[in-house]
Structures are given as structure tokens and as C-alpha cells.
Design a binder for these strands. Structure first.
Lengths: 142, 142
DNA sequence: GTGATAAATTAGAACTATTCTAATCTATTG
DNA sequence: CAATAGATTAGAATAGTTCTAATTTATCAC
């Protein structure tokens, strides 16, 4: 095992350490699910189901705790597209989203594709936290 | 009463009739609360509190029913900015939003101010329902 | 107007996603 | 390895919303 170019275990562990989070068994499992398969958009329930599916015993409370901790640590970012569900995105760089309203699937629009012009001045006493663009899609009528 | 230039009662009633909704006592009260004071962004609980405050007896269930019916009828539009609350906007024309993250206040950015360029092609089999831009604000650090 | 009927309203139960609580367990540090 | 701060957990609690089934009301035909 030693000396390999990439060691998933070490990588996940480092990711947690760097974020200032103790690498527990549960968090390691979640980091692997989240970050070893490219950009993902997950809800807590989805991630819980996946964790159980690979045999990781982890409670839903821990899923929620971890999603929030990962978000505070900058490993994840929350995307608000659905008033009934919280989505978390493993891509934390600047980018926007397509949201398929029929099935709840969310996916990225690369960050530099969209340009926004004409943003008005922000109201007095405030500053921009971020600007979210959501392109809501429906099945094409046909 | 007859012959007046604007008669709020008639106006509200017409608005409901035009939308194909029976003008009930409850709906009339809500239409007046919603549309007689310029553009508004309300949640169900807020609107319920307002209705009770002006002495209109109306249940929370009816508030929810009405908000959804008004939305289907094109009188309102839902704005998704907060994963824990549904906001309804009385301005149904094309426009975007400022969202004050600290206090949950939402307000309009006039529709023609913001220009979006570089939207990618929509995925096969889908078409754009709408594009939402939310500018999230936080108190300016000072 | 009156009666018949379809639609609307309602209280309260149910539901869903999420958060909280307090007990148990575990990673870290000395 | 013991002490301890932090993490995990089951299950209770909560918040917002939706549902259910009984009651009330608007509309329509007469």
C-alpha cells in the first residue's frame, strides 16, 4: 500500500485534517463518497442511503452534522433551489446551476460561462455574499 | 359607492374572477393584503399574521391553499431563496432578487437591470422554465 | 329568492426535512 | 494507557407544509 501515487485513505484523511476536522470513521466514509467521484450534488437522505449501501454504519444525525461542518470548512457549499430540501455541492468554485424541476436533479454550469452585467449597487450597509444563478429546466414540450 | 373611479372591492373581485377563482371572503381579504400595497414578498405565516391583524378570520390552511392557487393562476410567483421557507412575490414580471441573509428580507431588482450572457445550451430534451438570479447580501463588515 | 351542487374553508392530524438532547463512544494528547 | 475534548447516536422535538374529512359557502338553474 505504501508509496502509491494516490492513496485514497491518506487523501481523505488529509482533506479532513486540513479542514481542521477529526478524521473519524464516519467522516472518512463521507469524504470518500463525496469527493472521489467528481462533482456531486447531494441531499442528506441521498448521502445517508449511499453510506448505508456501501455498508458504512452512520446515522442521519451525523450526516447532517457532517454536511454542515464540511460546509463551514469550505469543503462543500449549499445550493438553494428547492424549498423542501437542502442540496450540497462538492464544487465550491464559482459556478452556477441547472435545476431539473421535474426530477430534482441539479448540475453545474461552468463558472466562467455566465456573465452578469448591470448588477445594481448593493443596498447601504450590505455587501454581496454571493450571486446565485439558477436555470430552471422543464421537459421540452414535444 | 357606484361610479367611483377605483373601487378596491370591485378591483379585488375582478382580479379573482379574471383568474378563474371564486371570490370568497377569505380570498378577497388576501388579495387586498397582497396587491394593494405595491410589490410584496410574503411567507404563509406572515400573511396569516397580517390577515388576523386586520380581523379577517382565515385559517392557515386557507392561506396555503390560496397562495398556491394564486401562484398557479399567475397572480403570484414563488421565490426560492431559503431552504426553510416559501416566499411568494406579488411581482410576476421578469426580475431578480436581493436577499438579506441576516434577516430574511427579500426585495426586487428591476427586471431589465441585469443582463445575463453566456448561458450554455440547455440539456437535450429540456427547455428553460426560468432563470433566477439571487444576490445574497450580508451586513457590510465595518 | 330557493334549492341543489360543486367548490372552498377549516381544525386538527399527519408528514417531511431538519435540529436538538443527552447519553455513549472515540480520537487525541500527555 | 488514562484523561478529556470532541464526535456519534437514537430518538424526541420542532418548523413548515400538506392532507383529511366534515362543514360552510358561492354559484347556477329555476
Amino acid at each position: 500500500m505504501e508509496g502509491m501515487a494516490t492513496r485514497p485513505y491518506t487523501h481523505s484523511l488529509e482533506r479532513l485534517r486540513t479542514a481542521g476536522l477529526r478524521p473519524t470513521r464516519q467522516r472518512l466514509a463521507l469524504v470518500r463518497l463525496l469527493f472521489e467521484r467528481g462533482d456531486r450534488h447531494v441531499t442528506a437522505e441521498q448521502l445517508h442511503a449511499e453510506a448505508l449501501a456501501i455498508g458504512a454504519r452512520i446515522s442521519l444525525a451525523t450526516i447532517y452534522n457532517s454536511l454542515h461542518q464540511f460546509t463551514s470548512a469550505g469543503l462543500l457549499r449549499e445550493v438553494v433551489v428547492d424549498p423542501a430540501r437542502r442540496y450540497f455541492d462538492t464544487n465550491v468554485s464559482a459556478h452556477h446551476h441547472f435545476f431539473h424541476e421535474d426530477d430534482g436533479v441539479l448540475h453545474d454550469i461552468p463558472g466562467d460561462r455566465i456573465a452578469l452585467a448591470g448588477l445594481p449597487d448593493t443596498p447601504r450597509g450590505t455587501e454581496i455574499d454571493r450571486v446565485d444563478v439558477v436555470v430552471r429546466l422543464r421537459p421540452a414540450r414535444g
